[in-house]
Amino acid sequence: MLSEHFELIETLGMNFAIAILFILIGLAIHDVLKSGNVPKFGRWFVWLVLFLGCAGFIAKGIIQAFLEPGL
C-alpha cells in the first residue's frame, strides 16, 4: 500500500514542509518588523511581497495539477 502511493505521500509532505517554511518566514519577518520600528508603508510592502510569493507557490501547484498528465 505504501509503495503504491509513495509519490503522492512525497508530494504532500513536500508541500506541507514548504507551507510550514512560509509560516516560519512570516513569523521571523513579523519579529524583525516589530523590533525594527519599520514605518507602516514599509510593513505593508513587506507583507505584500511575502503574500505574492505564497500566492505564486500556490498558483504553481494548481497549474501543475491541471497540466501534468496522470494526476
Rank of each mutant, 00 (worst) to 15 (best):
P39C: 08
L12D: 02
S3R: 07
C54S: 14
E68R: 09
F22Y: 06
A59H: 10
L52Y: 13
L2P: 02
R43E: 01
V32C: 05
E4H: 08
I29D: 02
I18W: 09
I62N: 00
H30V: 00
I20Q: 10
M14G: 02
D31C: 05
I18P: 01
A17D: 09
L12C: 06
A59V: 13
E4Y: 09
P39H: 03
S3C: 10
R43I: 04
L67K: 10
G36I: 04
K60W: 13
A17Y: 08
F66H: 11
A55Y: 03
F51E: 13
F22V: 04
K60H: 12
M1G: 13
A59C: 10
I25V: 14
Q64P: 02
M1Y: 10
I63T: 10
G70N: 02
M1Q: 06
A65H: 10
L52D: 14
H5Q: 08
L8H: 05
T11K: 09
M1R: 09
A17H: 07
W47H: 03
L50H: 00
V49C: 12
T11D: 00
F66T: 06
I25T: 12
G56K: 08
G70M: 05
S3H: 10
V38W: 00
L50K: 03
W47Q: 01
I63V: 14
H5T: 07
V32L: 11
F41Q: 11
G56T: 04
G36W: 01
H5P: 01
E4D: 12
K60T: 11
V32S: 10
I23T: 13
G13T: 14
W44Y: 13
I62R: 05
I18C: 09
I25D: 10
V32Y: 05
I25K: 07
